[in-house]
Design a binder for these strands. Structure first.
Lengths: 125, 125, 125, 125
DNA sequence: GTGGTCTAGACCACA
DNA sequence: GTGGTCTAGACCACA
């Protein structure tokens, strides 16, 4: 379920955090379902349990999971998270567009990229 | 000309590199004009010369400046660099849009952001 | 494994870089095997860790090794690197031949050198 | 007659030395003809006279020019120099071929390069 | 333990 | 004066 890229410059705990975020946001991991235990996952990935713990702490901090004493960690409801993620993505998007404008990128260039990505699904927009 | 943010998580040498990249890309620093000497800048910013050196090495590697032995560092012609930067920015942009599509962001949302950033200058597009 | 020539005009970090390049290209250091740690090697060679660090940064930049945060540096797959090296070597070779032609060196002189180097192994060519 | 490449990594005095070597070896500068004076050349190239002086010292050391007290520097007979240069070029050539052999370059690859360079002039060899 | 960043300070080649 | 190399030594993030 979780794969690690050892070539990546991202620290392991960041990679793990991001993978779970994606799984939760996409609904692959359902709300209130149980997360794999820190130890299980550590063994499975052959990674130091401290590293998994750090990823889980981050996920909890960001509201992706919630801990239940003595039972483990569980997936939060993702609807709020999706909105958060959308917002931060659009912020980042805006930052990029501002930078691009300074470099002389024209509006049409962005729209071309967007159109390609959205090709079929929204072609009648 | 160069400011340092000590609150930032970015290492000093990265910050310095980025500031100069921006100044060169925007044409504030003209091609073939001389960069501040490693030592001068070190004194000005109260930073160790080695740190400036590292930033300059990076800039040289990326083609932003060129060294002349015994004379100092000079600004390269930025036209190629601007194109490089545009390309990588549009790549990053595409990556974002793909992520956004998965989260259910609609085309119109991006275009709204773009329109706001480009407001007046390209209103007839 | 690594030897330093203090008589050489090449900076230490360059020498170290080149030795490791040769070891990796020749397959003495296998892909994904761990490089000696910066500190271990520094002690072994009685050289400052910063100097080793610089050599490792270069090797990483050139794709010879990859770092894993908190774990160390590891040897990359060298197949691409070998091709790169071959190409640059043949370029250099061409440069020399062009210079030699201007000086009046005859084709036969080059071929004699090549034959001597390749003596036995390819005698049926 | 002499051009400087400020983009080059070679120190100025090395560049100047090499240009004169080439001019003398090719016979553009005739034996016993007078070299431009240090001062003249310094002014012409807008370069520090010390740098020119250093280049001339090197050229004298290597036998390319000879000084006459109070009169200036003069070009040596180049026939011996040409032979020297040929020898060192073939040495360098051998070094490359040895390196190439280790990387698995085949004889035919070298010969192809040589043939291309010598194309028309020695096609009947 | 591992690499990454940074400072303080020295010495060298080059112009 | 200019950058390039190197040492000694500190502190930090990551595993």
């Amino acid at each position: 379920m979780i794969t690690i890229d050892y070539q990546s410059k991202l620290p392991l705990y960041e990679q793990i955090t991001q993978r779970f975020q994606a799984l939760i946001l996409r609904g692959v991991l359902k709300p209130d379902s149980q997360m794999p235990s820190v130890r299980t996952l550590a063994v499975e990935l052959s990674i130091n349990p401290n590293t998994i713990q750090k990823a889980y702490s981050l996920l909890e901090q960001q509201g992706y999971i919630y801990p239940v004493k003595g039972r483990g960690n569980f997936v939060s409801d993702s609807s709020v998270l999706v909105q958060q993620k959308k917002d931060s993505l659009l912020d980042e998007f805006k930052r990029l567009v501002i930078g691009g404008k300074e470099l002389g990128i024209r509006k049409a260039e962005y729209i071309q990229v967007i159109d390609r990505v959205y090709q079929k699904e929204e072609s009648h927009d």
